[in-house]
């Protein structure tokens, strides 16, 4: 499970627990390998799962958002949580674009979240500042670092997850207009060196920062 997706599942479970009732449904777009991720979410406590099946995972976030919006259009839910971004693309497109396609209010990259009385409030980290927002439900919220860590599934949870329903149907991806042309590993950093041991080494370090690295 992707880092931020794990946070999102945890936030969903906590939201249900706090509300005292409700249902947590996990949805994933992707090939059959995502079923394992969906089972993991159910072993953490999600009630059921839906796979929107694709052959491969497109790099086109909007096409994935379209598949999700098509699925969620008919759904009755109060909140949809996403991770802030995915590990591979770090784009952060899918959650917000899905909200927009559904016409729902969306809070991106929430680092704190409160849901009460049919309303939500959240904190978002800006660069060197933060903003507090209020929003109406139903809404889409994408989850940043700092809210919650995914719980470890219990043995009981793992056993129960095997029996929970997992539906699978073809994803209605939009047209794929972003295509990977190539991938390359960035050049390795040149090997560094140990300047010395203990406080006595700082003189040499400062000299190197001045004359060699020229950053001081």
């Amino acid at each position: 499970m992707d880092d931020f997706a794990g946070y999102a599942v945890e936030v969903a479970l906590q939201t249900k627990e706090k509300a005292g009732s409700g249902e947590v449904v996990v949805v994933a777009v992707g090939p059959d390998s995502v079923q394992e991720t969906l089972r993991k979410a159910m072993s953490m406590g999600a009630d059921r799962a839906i796979q929107l099946k694709t052959d491969t995972m497109p790099f086109d976030g909007l096409s994935i958002a379209k598949a999700l919006a098509a699925e969620l259009k008919a759904g009755a839910f109060d909140l949809v949580f996403f991770g802030k971004h995915a590990f591979d693309t770090s784009a952060g497109v899918v959650g917000t674009a899905t909200a927009e396609l559904l016409g729902l209010p969306c809070v991106t990259a929430a680092s704190k979240l409160e849901i009460a009385n049919g309303k939500g409030s959240a904190r978002r980290e800006l660069e060197g500042a933060a903003e507090l927002v209020e929003f109406a439900l139903p809404a889409v919220v994408t989850i940043d670092e700092g809210i919650a860590r995914p719980r470890y599934p219990s043995l009981k949870g793992i056993m129960a997850a095997k029996k929970k329903p997992l539906e699978s149907r073809p994803a209605q991806l939009g047209p794929i207009r972003v295509v990977v042309k190539g991938m390359a590993l960035p050049p390795d950093r040149p090997p560094g060196r140990i300047v010395g041991e203990g406080p006595g080494a700082v003189t040499e370090l400062v000299k190197l920062l001045q004359t060699e690295a020229k950053v001081l």
Binding site: R189, R193, I194, G196, G198, P199, A201, V202, L205, V206
Partner: peptide, 28 residues
């Protein structure tokens, strides 16, 4: 961390960092 560091100092941060702070101040 030493595998990606251009320059490394092996030592206790509680001793090395104050010394480095002093040396940087002087260099500045």
């Amino acid at each position: 961390i030493f595998k990606v560091a251009d320059y490394g100092i092996i030592g206790d941060v509680l001793e090395v960092v104050p010394a480095l702070t002093q040396a940087v101040r002087e260099a500045k």
